[in-house]
């Protein structure tokens, strides 16, 4: 059995519903080596649906928010003037904390001249764990009505393994939550589909990864087999399409039943197993190429 270095590989896309989770879970199981899978799509975590064992362990996750000690507070308002996120309001005889707006920067506590602010934990979601065969899943799940997706993702992201391969299932988009999830990865797989929406959102994701200086390759899902708009874009930009997964109703139906549809297909499965050696070659290559050096 082959083992891989503790690389961190993010599975991302600009557009939602292109098959990130399907790819991440199928890849994790296809490799048949110990893998840690982090589900960082904390608003809608779905990777666990492929684990028949069900979620085993659940730990509340919190962020630090300010709490005012009214025995000490002089209502001077320094904290509220400092806070750029309007998370504190101070009146003549009262002070309020709006936890939803707090970015946990710690500034209010620093500036308070009366040491009247301390930080207390506030639960924003859960960390959940399940293992099956060689795959260990750690997922974040944001509590409903909470807006702190990125802080929760950063907490889950710290669970990347030091001694085995880590795959990171990222949220869609190209802004804070997606960046929190891909940041620190050695490589990113961008999953897309051959439609104008797929192409438009792929371009945004490519720009983002270039800003973050993370090397990446494309997985073309629901490929029609012919030369598509994604092929011509990748040719122009000199981006590798690492793998194409055919557009078959049979695959869509198997996915809808929660089956490991890619692993069921011998050809797709063997292509998934080829991905890791290809990625490792590309990362080595980028280590000697001056444009690709990671900071």
């Amino acid at each position: 059995m082959m083992n891989y270095p503790p690389l961190q590989i993010a599975i991302a896309s600009g557009k939602g519903g292109t098959g990130k989770t399907t790819l991440a879970v199928n890849l994790a199981f296809a490799l048949e080596v110990p893998v840690r899978l982090l589900d960082c799509d904390v608003e809608e975590p779905n990777a666990h649906l492929y684990f028949y064992a069900g979620l085993k362990e659940s730990v509340p996750v919190s962020v630090q928010v300010p709490e005012i000690d009214f025995a000490l507070c002089q209502f001077c308002g320094d904290c509220s003037r400092f806070c750029r996120f309007n998370a504190l309001a101070v009146g003549k005889k009262t002070a309020l904390v709006f936890k939803e707006l707090c970015h946990n920067c710690g500034g209010c506590k620093l500036v308070c001249p009366h040491q009247a602010i301390r930080e207390v934990p506030w639960v924003i979601g859960k960390k959940e764990i399940v293992s099956q065969d060689s795959v260990e899943l750690i997922q974040g799940c944001l509590d409903i009505g909470r807006v702190q997706a990125s802080p929760l993702i950063r907490i889950i992201r710290k669970e990347a393994s030091k001694d085995k391969l880590t795959l990171i299932d990222c949220p869609p988009g190209t802004t804070c939550p997606m960046i929190a999830a891909v940041e620190g990865s050695d490589y990113a797989l961008l999953v897309t589909e051959p439609t104008p929406f797929g192409l438009n959102d792929l371009k945004l994701a490519v720009e983002t990864l270039r800003v973050l200086k993370i090397p990446f390759g494309i997985i073309l899902n629901r490929s029609q087999g012919k030369d598509s708009i994604i092929h011509s874009y990748c040719r122009e930009e000199g981006i590798n399409i690492l793998m194409e997964i055919p557009d078959r109703r049979q695959i869509a139906e198997a996915c809808s039943r929660g089956e490991l549809a890619f692993c069921q297909d011998e050809e797709i499965r063997s292509q998934l197993r080829e991905l890791l050696p290809t990625i490792m070659m590309q990362i080595n290559f980028s280590m000697v190429s001056p444009e690709g050096v990671r900071p």
Partner: peptide, 10 residues
């Protein structure tokens, strides 16, 4: 609307 249930959806 956007996907998800977080800040931009709310």
């Amino acid at each position: 609307g956007p996907p998800g249930i977080g800040c931009p959806v709310i």
